[in-house]
Design a protein around this nucleic acid. Structure first.
Length: 426
RNA sequence: GUGGGCGUAGCUCAGCUGGUAGAGCUCCGCGUUGUGGUCGCGGCGGUCGCGGGUUCGAAUCCCGUCGCUCACCCCA
């Protein structure tokens, strides 16, 4: 076993059965929902220049400081497997001059992302996300639209019972001022904090709100809150988003301890969580990032987006009782023995498929009894039997449901496919 | 990186205080000299994660190591 090859730590194989589930989430639920809301699909590379994430995501984040898969290529360029999708989409927005299009530009994507973390329930090193980014407008309706989209998508996927927590981080200036205020508070209570939080007071004090450490939580109960210091336009923007969510019938909880891990967030931040998951309860989340495009060399451009974890959405759906779909049934199974004309049987299978029928042919060298079993497993509606003492192109067609079997005689090389197909369709 | 749990057939697992491996499911065949889904019988399949130690003898005890998993941290 130890010598056997296995998938790298934190990665996994999507096996048949599960693969269909995932495809249904992306192609059956997400794609149509995005299309109805005017979001266009975009695909960006699996790796980018390291600099994009260092600047876009932020040096102080856990992701950039220790979770990136970074490598140097043959041209001595530092590249990084994308750990998230917002910075790449913003890069593409700038690179392709999308700011000259009618605004806002609404984009969505699906794909794999990479972070070098210790894997655990719901957390992988290669994971899949469905994401949305809407750039070029700071209208609160854009925020609300994006949030409603995710809320409805989760329900459609069967991931019911998720909680939506929402808050506002205000402008970056307000956030900076608040950050200083919080640092002072944390230092004053340093003794009660966990070692992790203490070490991050300077780097990212907001993170303290997330800690599960008891002493830290006690301290944070009385900590100053960013939301209460937000006023003016930012406050009005937030209130507007809330009013629109209410109008759309989406329930939310205002949570002034909500912190998002990426540096670029401003104003609206939100997160959908589920108590059906393990420690990684976040199903999807995002927020507004009004300074990011400019930071990446583009014109001042507001934006909002979110990402949802495919594995987590599916996990919630499964825990909520969403049932797997039945395997696709075959229309016909072609059974043959050693004396059957192999070429005729093969040509028949190919021809039936070209006519739109799901046709399977025996490939395992089974006994006829075994072939019947296999046809049954494949859910075949009909069985076509060749050989067994019949003339070259003659065949029997058996209805697997009723057990009824009809012999087709005097078939020729010219008409056997048509006649067998006609019998199958009848 | 730190801590807990676990590593025995493809899958789920049993194997007590040491005597060199079992079950169910799956798969293949037979029972039906071609005809399935039930049932019965048989078969394929394991260097018991790996390495070392104790012992006449270890899947079973000891040490080490690797892997998986859950949690902290972080986040989708």
């Amino acid at each position: 076993m130890s010598e056997q090859q296995q998938a790298p730590r934190g990665t996994y194989d999507v096996l048949p059965g599960v693969a269909e589930h995932r495809a249904r989430l992306v192609d059956g639920v997400a794609a149509p929902a995005f299309a109805r809301a005017g979001y266009a699909r975009i695909e960006t590379p699996a790796f980018e220049h390291t600099e994009l994430f260092a600047r876009g995501v932020g040096e102080s984040t856990e992701i950039v400081s220790k979770e990136m898969y970074t490598f140097t290529d043959q041209g001595e360029r530092s590249l990084t497997l994308r750990p998230e999708g917002t910075a790449p989409v913003c890069r593409a927005y700038v690179e392709h001059g999308m700011h000259k299009l009618a605004q806002p530009v609404k984009l969505w994507y699906e794909g794999s992302f990479f972070r070098q973390e210790a894997p655990q329930a719901g957390r992988f090193r290669q994971f899949f996300q469905i994401g949305a980014e809407a750039l070029g407008s700071d209208d609160p309706a854009l925020d609300a639209e994006a949030i409603v989209l995710l809320a409805r998508m989760l329900e459609a996927a069967g991931a019911t019972g998720c909680r939506l927590r929402i808050s506002s981080l205000g402008s970056s200036a307000e956030r900076a001022a608040y950050s200083d205020q919080l640092k002072v508070y944390l230092r004053a209570n340093e003794a009660a904090l966990s070692a992790d939080v203490r070490e991050r007071i300077e780097l990212n004090p907001l993170r303290a709100f997330d800690a599960k450490h008891e002493g830290t939580q006690a301290v944070m109960t009385d900590a100053p809150r960013l939301l209460s210091s937000i006023s003016g336009e930012d406050r009005a923007h937030f209130d507007d988003v809330l009013a629109l969510l209410t109008a759309a019938g989406v329930a939310y909880e205002i949570d002034d301890t909500l912190v998002r891990g990426l540096d670029y967030y401003t104003r609206t931040v939100f997160e959908f969580t589920s108590d059906r998951l393990g420690a990684q309860s976040g199903v999807g989340g995002g927020g507004r990032y009004d300074g990011l495009v400019e930071l990446l060399g583009g014109p001042p451009t507001p934006g909002i987006g979110w990402a949802a974890g495919v594995e987590r959405v599916l996990a919630v759906a499964e825990a909520a009782g969403a049932q797997p779909a039945a395997a696709a049934a075959a229309d016909a199974y072609i059974a043959l023995d050693a004396e059957a004309d192999r070429e005729a049987a093969f040509a028949l299978a190919c021809a039936l498929r070209e006519r739109g029928l799901a046709a399977l042919i025996e490939l395992g060298g089974r006994s006829l009894k075994g072939q019947l079993k296999q046809a049954d497993r494949a859910g075949a509606k009909s069985l076509v039997i060749l050989g067994g003492g019949r003339a070259a192109y003659d065949a029997a067609v058996k209805n697997m449901h009723t057990g009824e079997q009809r012999e087709l005689n005097d078939l020729t090389k010219q008409d056997y496919i048509d006649r067998i197909a006609a019998e199958l369709i009848a």
